[in-house]
Write a protein that binds this DNA or RNA. Structure first.
Length: 444
RNA sequence: CGGAGCGUGGCGCAGCCUGGUAGCGCACUUCGCUGGGGGUGAAGGGGUCGGAGGUUCGAAUCCUCUCGCUCCGACCA
């Protein structure tokens, strides 16, 4: 991609109303534009990252056996009356009245909707277990949206819904998602901590949220340091038994949200030096809630004995758009964003230091085409701007590798490779630079 | 919803208190010099001050209403 053909409206100054690093940086790097309170347009760089994150989530969901569907943003309020949540959910639901004076809801979540789909088609235990997920925009009319897309009113969420015959198999479904979540977040280089949590308006008795500790986190979490040292990829997890053991290993360590925190228990079970507490950003939340929706909505199946029983359900959410901000909160410096390779909008940023130099330009194009051919997404900053401007924009948008090409080093067949993560620069041959980039990217 | 504040070119702000129809930095346009960390010289374009009403000879400035946005608190992926 040629920068001059693309659309990255960067700005030097911080927006007046942005308070946290991710919000400032997302606006300054031209990823998002606010349209209303808590409602944003996603500009090219922003949507690229959002899609990358979405795809990682999608891959891990599929790997865990979840099946993608797409439910509408607008739902009939009748469904919500059936489940009893129409009144319960309150002012956060955005209601829309259509021309026939029917009330629609811009969905804040989809338990009712998916239960409706399930009950229409699934009648037998033979079709279980089933896990359906979708990635769709949600709307929660927060009293006070803030922090950019971290707490928007409109946000992109991945939500999965599991259906099982009984409590035991429902637990397996829950555990599968538990593992999928750990893998998903790890691929984004986030250290997500599963914490036992209140289930809130979704309901149920088994619930964990996945949080990342960061200074801008919104609520206090407490855990045993040992959880951070666990590595979900270390073990081969294929059978239900292996999955259960792995999850139960996680669950054996203390971890709790503010509401669930028990100081005495914390001190009793966790050594002082292993006690960790910090502000957590909640990026995922999973619930197992049995028949909370299936019962009032008559989502029942016939079991092996020919008896009718309500399905056991669970729901599993990931804040996709919030993840974009979370990753930035975790990876940034004074100059800008530092994208993990897996979600970076481009992997390589070629910076041409001297625009009117034919040799420099053609070398840039050559390298750009070569990288693209290798399947490495590259942006070539061919703008007629000063070197300094390109450097600072490059650091701001946080592309992992910068290839700096100028007449001085080109004479010797060299290029400067800067790794954004470390800000280390080295002058090496083009071949070695490309090999190095390849090895780092494809090793992932 | 309770408390606080803001709304002046694309962005960030000054002017408002002590009314006299707008100013700064960045960005933008053209030309030149430049080009290894937001370079530089010259010449330009763009706003009637969120909206409505009122006071006044005269309103960005005073008053009333209204809309939007932000911040602090309770709620939340």
């Amino acid at each position: 991609m040629l920068w001059s053909n693309y659309f990255i409206p960067t700005q030097k100054e911080n927006p007046a109303d942005a308070k946290i690093p991710s919000h400032k940086l997302m606006v300054r790097s031209g990823m998002i534009k606010q349209e209303s309170a808590g409602i944003y347009s996603w500009l090219p760089l922003g949507i690229k990252v959002l899609k990358n994150i979405e795809n990682i989530i999608r891959q891990e969901q599929e790997r865990a056996g979840a099946i993608e569907i797409l439910m509408p943003t607008l739902q009939s309020s009748d469904l919500w009356s059936e489940s009893g949540r129409y009144d319960g959910y309150g002012e956060e639901m955005l209601r829309v009245v259509d021309r026939h004076d029917r009330i629609l809801i811009y969905g804040p979540t989809n338990e009712e909707q998916v239960t409706e789909i399930f009950r229409k088609y699934v009648k037998s235990y033979k079709n279980l277990p089933l896990n359906l997920y979708h990635i769709q925009w949600k709307f929660r009319d927060e009293i006070r949206p803030r922090f950019g897309v971290m707490r928007g009113r409109e946000f992109l969420m991945k939500d999965s819904y599991s259906f099982d015959l009984n409590e035991d198999t429902a637990k397996i479904s829950y555990y599968k998602m538990f593992v999928a979540y750990l893998k998903t977040f790890q691929r984004m280089e986030l250290k997500a901590i599963p914490v036992s949590a209140e289930s809130g308006p979704i309901g149920g008795n088994l619930s964990h949220e996945f949080s990342v500790i960061a200074p801008t986190g919104e609520s206090e979490i407490f855990c045993d340091k040992s959880i951070l040292d666990l590595d979900i990829n270390k073990k081969n997890l294929t059978t239900d038994k292996e999955i259960s053991e792995a999850v139960e290993n996680y669950l054996s360590f203390y971890s709790a949200t503010d509401e669930k925190h028990d100081v005495n228990n914390f001190n009793k079970t966790v050594k002082k030096k292993d006690q960790i507490s910090g502000r957590g950003i909640e990026i995922g939340h999973i619930f197992s809630f049995g028949d909370k929706y299936s019962k009032p909505m008559n989502a029942s199946i016939v079991n092996a004995d020919g008896k009718i029983s309500d399905v056991y359900m669970g729901s599993y959410g990931i804040g996709v758009s919030r993840l974009v901000a979370t990753i930035i909160e975790c990876f940034n410096d004074d100059d800008g964003i530092i994208w993990p390779i897996s979600v970076a909008p481009f992997k390589v940023n070629i910076i041409n230091l001297k625009n009117n130099d034919d040799d420099c330009y053609s070398k840039c194009i050559e390298i750009h085409n070569l990288l693209e051919k290798l399947g490495i997404e590259t942006i070539f900053d061919d703008r007629d701007e000063s070197a300094g401007k390109k450097f600072s924009d490059g650091d701001l948008i946080g592309v992992p590798f910068q290839l700096i090409i100028g007449p001085r080093e080109l004479k010797n067949g060299n290029v400067e490779l800067k790794i954004r993560k470390t800000n280390k620069k080295e002058i090496i041959s083009f071949e070695r630079a490309i090999d190095k980039i390849k090895s780092i990217i494809f090793e992932e």
